[in-house]
Amino acid sequence: MIEVQGLTKYYADLRRGRFVALDGLSFYALPGQVYGLLGPNGAGKTTALRILSTVLRPSNGTARVNGYDVVLEPSQVRRQIGFMSANTGIYDRMTAWEMVEYFGRLHGLPPAELTQRMESLFEKFKMNDIRDVLGAKMSTGMRQKVSIARAIVHDPPVLIFDEATAGLDVLVARALLHRVAELRQNGKCIIFSTHIMREAEKLCDRLAIVHRGKILAEGTLEELRQEHGENDLEEIFFQLISRYEQAGTPAAEHDLV
């Protein structure tokens, strides 16, 4: 599971002081759940997920992934997670098989077990025909498949999807959401960031609406609907953001601390 408490991240800008990207983010996500981070571009979703995957360090607050602290035990945290970013992170000059194998070996899987697992993954994702295709020659759909296979080859308990459906056509996006739902059924704890409301509505068990580094609302879809007296998630989202902006938190005041 994932527990985030008061997570803050500010970037040092020598000319202008501190730019606050995350401002006291707190939430938790349980195994067998998809936790959605919903927010406009620049809300701080990617920063939060980069901290969870230990790529960035938080300025303040704590985050624990499957019981391991992201600051104190980053190596253990990285063994617990599978990370998939918006741009898929596919190497141009590696074949699908080599790529998945590389990450499997970095995760320390024994060769025999790795081969067995890769065979089953390639079979399941119908990737056997692209086994020897180089990353540069892959279509977007193929890249997504390889990217997921790479993220789950070591069977991690926690999966982090950062805007994984960005730029995908409907068919590929649908297939990806289907796979995420399957992973949830397998008991994985999944964090899924997106700015597409329909995806969040369909997939997420719990949601946090993030704006300017803060959580404006958090809960199950049903809880959010009841709280705001509105059925449409997009409408709830819009209301929250407008209310926040009208409450007089001008950008300059917020950004510069």
Binding site: V55, R79, I81, G89, F103, G108
Partner: peptide, 13 residues
């Protein structure tokens, strides 16, 4: 190419 982020989130220090 965006592959560095993936590598940094792998167990490699």
């Amino acid at each position: 190419r965006g592959t560095l982020e993936t590598l940094l989130s792998s167990p490699a220090e």
